[in-house]
């Protein structure tokens, strides 16, 4: 496996009295796409929220490039090059596309912010065409594109992305996966959660199967795709 960028050791997290993530251990390689799959309730989104400091870990440790980041909040993680795109709609509907994009760098005073925004609009011409429109008028795919562009404004080293294909057409999903593949080629490490397991693993380097809050399998994506136990897992059986 390539050099590890993110290492998660025995991470536990949950809501109220319910512990959802129960000692997950996994690694995310630098410059690679790692996809986490698993049935509903396995703890995938909880994992993301705990990594990004939105949910305090109940146990375990998280390391980024060897430095412990357990319990750090979003601002500190953004400073360290980690960005997070949650599932669902994550825009500010009454702000324009350009202003939504600018807010990707809201945590910091960036002297060349305007130049970065322009560069991002050049990179995503569809957004450039709609730069002055309210974000609420964008289609689902365009909204996800804007979220991605916003996340990339800070030139992240690690992108955490939760269910990017949720509610999108197969064509738009393929476009989004294409962009993620391009990011990987530029050296960005990606930790992705995806229900659309086959497509996601097809473009990933590594896969992690999460089941009942624990990592059931961590392997090259191709090996997971070929594993007959995976289909059974999604049909309700365990992986063991």
């Amino acid at each position: 496996m390539a050099e590890t960028l993110l290492r998660i050791e025995d991470l536990a997290a949950g809501y109220g009295r319910v512990t959802i993530l129960r000692g997950a251990t996994l690694a995310v390689a630098a410059g690679a796409v790692t996809t986490v799959i698993g049935p509903n309730g396995a703890g995938k989104s909880t994992l993301m929220r705990a990594i990004f400091g939105l949910l305090p870990p109940r146990a375990g440790r998280i390391f980024l490039a060897g430095e412990e980041i357990t319990g750090l909040g979003p601002r500190e993680l953004l400073r360290r090059g980690v960005v997070y795109v949650p599932q669902g709609r994550n825009l500010f509907p009454e702000l324009t596309v350009r202003h939504n994009l600018e807010l990707g760098a809201a945590a910091f005073r960036i002297p060349d912010l305007d130049a970065r925004v322009e560069a991002m609009l050049d990179r995503f011409p569809l957004l450039a065409e709609r730069a002055g429109m309210q974000a609420s008028v964008l289609s689902g795919g365009e909204q996800k594109l804007l979220e991605l562009a916003r996340a990339l404004l800070l030139d992240p080293a690690l992108l955490l992305i939760d269910e990017p294909s949720l509610g999108l057409s197969p064509r738009t999903t393929a476009e989004i996966f294409g962009i993620l593949g391009g990011l990987r080629d530029r050296g960005v490490a990606i930790l992705m959660i995806e229900q659309n397991a086959r497509s996601a693993l097809g473009m990933s380097d590594f896969g992690v199967v999460l089941d009942q809050g624990r990592v059931a399998l961590e392997a090259p994506a191709a090996d997971i795709l070929a594993d007959p136990r995976i289909g059974r897992l999604f049909l309700g059986g365990g992986i063991g």
Partner: peptide, 23 residues
């Protein structure tokens, strides 16, 4: 203004505002 838009962002979607590092 940048500050005004951060206030608007907080009003429209506080969780996403936090994810973007807005105080």
């Amino acid at each position: 203004t940048r500050l005004g838009r951060m206030m608007q962002a907080t009003a429209q979607n506080p969780e996403v505002a936090e994810i973007l590092g807005i105080p």
